[in-house]
């Protein structure tokens, strides 16, 4: 979340075309930049409104990677780490509290799955109902490969027959 602020702040500095005019014009431009920075700062504040008292950096890293694997139920294409939804914040706090209680990542995931089903996991578990999801693409790939192999062989055989029938054929088709 903080990173996004920096990503937003850099383009002004990174854009080389802005630099000369910035130095030349001592008038309005610095004020505009200041104003711009002010708005960026408020955006960053709005996103960093959710500070959690982590024990150490390792726990924060673990929290970040775990919440990135969990789906926000409200805006379903966002993960818990990125979502600004109210429920996502509540669930982040829930995950944080469970971490403080010494729960493992697996236990925390199970806690959420018990309440919100496998849907909260971005990585669906392999089980009977997800076999098609996991191995369907492989099956399709194998079927495609089989079709290619059969076709190539058949054409090869056909070409040999044609070559035997018409030895003078020089490939005019091409």
């Amino acid at each position: 979340m903080i990173r996004r602020f920096f990503v937003g702040a850099h383009p002004v500095r990174d854009n080389p075309t802005k630099r000369p005019s910035w130095r030349r014009a001592q008038g309005a431009l610095p004020q505009v930049l200041l104003l711009l920075l002010f708005f960026m700062a408020t955006v960053a504040f709005a996103q960093a409104i959710d500070p959690l008292p982590f024990k150490d950096h390792a726990q924060e890293v673990r929290f970040q990677s775990l919440t990135r694997e969990l789906r926000c139920l409200v805006c379903q294409n966002e993960n818990l780490a990125d979502s600004n939804a109210d429920l996502a914040r509540d669930l982040r706090h829930e995950v944080f509290n469970l971490m403080q209680q010494g729960k493992s990542d697996e236990e925390i995931k199970q806690y959420l799955v018990d309440r919100y089903s496998d849907f909260v996991l971005y990585d669906p578990p392999v089980k009977a109902s997800t076999l098609l999801l996991w191995f369907g693409p492989l099956v399709i790939l194998l079927a495609g490969a089989a079709v290619v192999v059969v076709t190539v062989r058949r054409r090869g055989r056909a070409a040999v027959t044609v070559a035997n029938d018409k030895p003078t054929d020089e490939g005019d088709d091409w």
């Binding site: 409200v74 109210d86 919100y116 089903s117």
Partner: peptide, 13 residues
């Protein structure tokens, strides 16, 4: 008020 119990019920909206 806090929506804490609602999490146990799997309420998301």
């Amino acid at each position: 008020r806090e929506g804490r119990t609602a999490i146990d019920f799997g309420v998301y909206g």
